[in-house]
Design a protein around this nucleic acid. Structure first.
Lengths: 352, 352
DNA sequence: GTGAAAGCGCTAACAA
DNA sequence: TTGTTAGCGCTTTCAC
């Protein structure tokens, strides 16, 4: 709660009065304009000090018709990936004197649109949008239709209206393929969430092409589901129940890795003895569990940096066709990846 | 990037012109003031529709001298706990027509102070502060000194100036004690991060008192470190290297659980056969790994709800002494907790 | 019922 | 070099 005394913050006029100058002069001093008499600069500083004056950035922005606010719209805050993304974006915005206002779309297109509208109401200088779905989402259209300045990140490989920055999914998947094929795996299950968008396709095709190039006889099974996680679990469970026995699973998303792990548990399979596992997205716990889990690390810091870079270039008026950047991922091979088990494939285990 | 056409958003005056009324009338219509002639209401709505007018909330707030913005200051965004906290706070703020602006202090007091200043510059209506340290932090003082309205959450059991909402650490720890003692553990290591603040003390004492009440001969070792995680790791490693062999570890924070797990790994110990593990804070992966990890679940939703409730009461002018709420936690006993191993305690294992 | 006028806190053009 | 004036987009008296 607030303490007893009502704190009415001093305005620029209060400072002006105390310093015996005009508000305009105070404003100049605050902005380091050099045409002010040193003596007055001094008096203004003193008044500022005494009153504890701090400018209201929103009022200032209003007048200048330019808000030093960047909006960020992300599907969620709960994951390490997006959490860390927010942290980076926040820092990069502040570095330039802007404030980041982040909002979560909760994987809902309506919500995404609503937030976009609010960002527009706020007249934010620019928006970093991690769209709810792949390139077919409405977010971009909305931004486009309202003439907003923005960058799209994650799950978007390119866009016809906006700059995009994403992880280089295709190369990363190719590296996973090299790793798995190299270790002798010839039957791999790929699981993933999301629409048949460019991002999923890149991850999938990057894997498939490289794997098949290394050994045309490799068997690659694929289970993709819409954005919900439970159908994916059901499909995977069903897949294993049918007796399918891949020697490795490659998950295109973190949730998929979790689902795969829990399905292994149900059946009493252990990594990497019974089956190998590697997935997109690293997490802190993956290097601590037994076994440790192999993961593709997306370069959050670089994605954030490039996105903000592009965004501010556009804010500063740079024109030209949209660019599409891809940032290199890193594959952390951990204990969950091994050679295919030499013995007979594990049986149905605790299946169903 | 923005498309070719420059989008200058319509102001309330544009609407007024199109509707053939004054800006004041438009304002009234937008706010549902009933003293406007129905015909004019109609024309205003039409103009709004045609122009796609949306009020600028910041300009509006400026005039009303009251910003519909809530600030949230959290130590980090990367954890599930705080990520989910932001999501909840965001939703609760929007429910009341406010926008949440979240910032991360990165466990730094300077940064916390800086953010607090910025929140004040923004003239936010209220602040939800999860302080960097326990009750000795400067955040509260700063808010107090500047007459800000706020609530403190997490790691703060009470405050003399602000309402607080936290998890009921003491009860939760007591329950952990009952569980461990009940299963026969008589030698427990408690690990934790953070100062000797009220929150850590509550968690520790809640455990100790209940455990000792159940069996006075129980041995409780404690390793507490300042806010950094590596010293904690070193201390734990050292502790085990000295040959200490507790049958269970109770971690007061998520990071501690991770450190404990990784130290178990180093030594080749498995839960719960070699040692049991339970810690504060649940995470998605804990129910998926082998073994699954027991955890105290903090009721993020309730903490958020109560905090926002208190905050808006204060914003609406409610006076009275600060309240201190504690929300009940839930203990999820999972596979990592078992009976003490009956055989000889595990040896030094891979120890250093 | 309505609109002119004043003003939130600030900045930018211009005149002095 | 400085202060006056005129707003940014909105709300709120308060006359009419």
């Amino acid at each position: 709660m607030s303490s007893g005394a009502v704190h009415k913050r001093p305005s620029i006029h209060d400072v002006a009065n105390h310093a015996g100058v005009s508000a305009a002069t105070v404003s100049k001093v605050m902005h380091g304009v050099s045409t002010v008499k040193p003596e007055n600069v001094q008096r203004v500083f003193e008044a500022v000090e005494r009153l504890g004056y701090r400018a209201d950035p929103l009022a200032s922005d209003l007048r200048r018709a330019k808000r030093r606010i960047i909006g960020a719209i992300l599907p969620e805050f709960e994951s390490e990936f997006f959490g860390s993304m927010v942290t980076h974006l926040e820092r990069l915005a502040e570095l330039r004197g802007y404030t980041l206002v982040a909002a979560s779309s909760g994987e809902s297109e309506e919500r995404e649109a609503e937030i976009l509208r609010r960002m527009q109401d706020w007249r934010v200088a620019g928006v970093v949008l991690a769209p709810v779905r792949d390139e077919h989402g409405r977010g971009g259209e909305l931004m486009q239709a309202h003439g907003m300045t923005g960058v799209m990140i994650d799950r978007v490989l390119s866009d016809e209206s906006f700059d995009t920055v994403s992880a280089d999914s295709m190369s990363a998947s190719a590296e996973v393929a090299r790793e798995l094929i190299g270790r002798g795996h010839r039957h791999v299950l790929v699981v993933g969430l999301g629409e048949q968008g460019a991002c999923v396709r890149a991850r999938l095709e990057g894997f498939r092409r490289t794997a098949e190039a290394l050994d045309p006889k490799v068997q690659i099974d694929v289970i993709l589901c819409e954005s919900d996680v439970e159908p994916l679990r059901a499909s995977i469970r069903d897949y294993f129940s049918r007796g399918e026995r891949p020697t490795a699973v490659f998950s295109l998303f973190l949730k998929g890795t979790l689902v795969a792990l829990s399905e292994f548990r149900r059946r009493g399979w252990h990594c990497p003895d019974d089956i190998s596992l590697v997935g997109f997205d690293d997490a802190e716990w993956m290097s601590v569990t037994w076994p440790t889990i192999a993961a593709v690390v997306q370069p959050v810091d670089q994605i954030a940096a490039q996105a903000m870079d592009m965004l501010f270039r556009r804010i500063d008026g740079e024109t030209g066709p949209p660019t599409a950047r891809l940032e290199r991922c890193q594959l952390l091979v951990r204990e969950s990846v091994g050679a295919p088990s030499s013995g007979p494939h594990p049986g149905g285990g605790a299946g169903q």
